[in-house]
Structure formats: C-alpha cells, structure tokens
Amino acid sequence: MDKLRIRFEKAGKAAYISHLDLMHVVQRVFLRAGTPLKYSEGFNPHPQLSICVPLPLGMESGCELMDFRVTRDIDAAALPGELNAVSPEGLRFIECYEPQRKASEIKWLRCAGIYEYDAGAPEASALEGFYSRGSVPVLRRTKRGEGVLELAGNVRDFTAAPCEGGLRVECAVSAAEPSVNPELLVRALEQNEPGLRPDFASWRRLEFYDKDMTAFR
C-alpha cells in the first residue's frame, strides 16, 4: 500500500494560502515530520501529492482530501498527529487511510456560508425562495471567456437561518461537471436580485458526496 489519502482542515489564517502555495507548504510539513514521501522520477524530482478538489483562495474547509504516495509502510493512524505537530496555524490533519474510492466519484459538496448584512438581513425565506427558482442564471468568467452557468439543478438543499451579523446558509453545490464555486451564489444575487445581496460572504466546505449523496472520504 503506497497510496494514501489524508483528510484535513484548512481554516483561519491558512484559508489565505493559495492552492499552489499549499502544495509547497504541505510538502514541507511532510518533510519536517519525516514522512517517507514518494518522489517522481526525473531531473527535478517532486513529491507526488494531489488535492482532490482544489479549494478557492480565502475559503475555509473542514473536509479537504489529498492523495499522496509513500516509499514504505507507515502508521497511517499516527500520521495526522505527527503532521499537526509541525504544521502552520490553521492547517489540521484529521485522518489518514488507504483510499477505497477514486476522487473522480466526487459529485457534490456541502458548504456553509455566512452572509453578512451591515444594514440588517433579509428574511431567510427570501433567500431560500431565490435559490429554489426554476432558473438561477449566473454570468461567470472562465478561462474560455464569459459564460452563463445555470445554478438551478447544481445547487440543492439550500437553507438559511438568522445568525449574528446576517444569515447562516447551507447547501450542496455540484463539485464536478460543472464545478460550482459557492461564491457564484452571491454573484447570482448581485445579478438577479441585488436587494438580497450581502455586504460580504464567507464560505466553508463541510463534506464531499458522490452522485447518490453518500459522504465521500
């Protein structure tokens, strides 16, 4: 068993570490912990690390998954503790195991958001009503240019409840084909229902699911 998967949290100050920087950070965490990471062959060897679903900069997550390879058997149960002892603030490893399923089976992502309204929040039901419309188009910019993404069908189980400073929302978004950045939910408000637009929104990933809404780990 040289393939392993580790589940970790990336939150607080660590939320601002970019995906590219994170690869570098994690590599050094492994090196400090003395984990026998497997390196690629070749002129410029690099460790074989891969993050299942890259996390947008600034977003927190309690359910990140990363696959990696080691050169010899290690005590997977002990690994998170060893890594946490040498990790930067906000990065916390939860569990390590041999992956039973391929990352390509990931389909849904549950996330929670805080919509901050400085001048008072709207009714939770107004937001729930908006996201359950038959069509919620959002204009987004991708590498291929601007395009309209339909959120209806790609966002499900949206709930909202009052909390300090605004509303706490929760929903599942499509994580693959298409992959929906939860920030698009706010963009959709800006474009379609500006009166409901929060002054600021922050998001946290909670759990990945497969197409049958069974938790994926």
């Binding site: 100050k13 601002y16 570490i17 400090r32 900069l57 600034g58 930067p88 906000g90």
Partner: peptide, 15 residues
C-alpha cells in the same frame, strides 16, 4: 483580504 493580491503575506500564522 480576498480582494488583494497574495493575501497570505498579510496574515502571519506561518510555521
């Protein structure tokens, strides 16, 4: 922080 370039420069929290 989400609106500026390379926000990790402004947070601290490094190992």
């Amino acid at each position: 922080l989400p609106t500026v370039q390379k926000p990790a420069r402004y947070t601290g929290g490094e190992y």
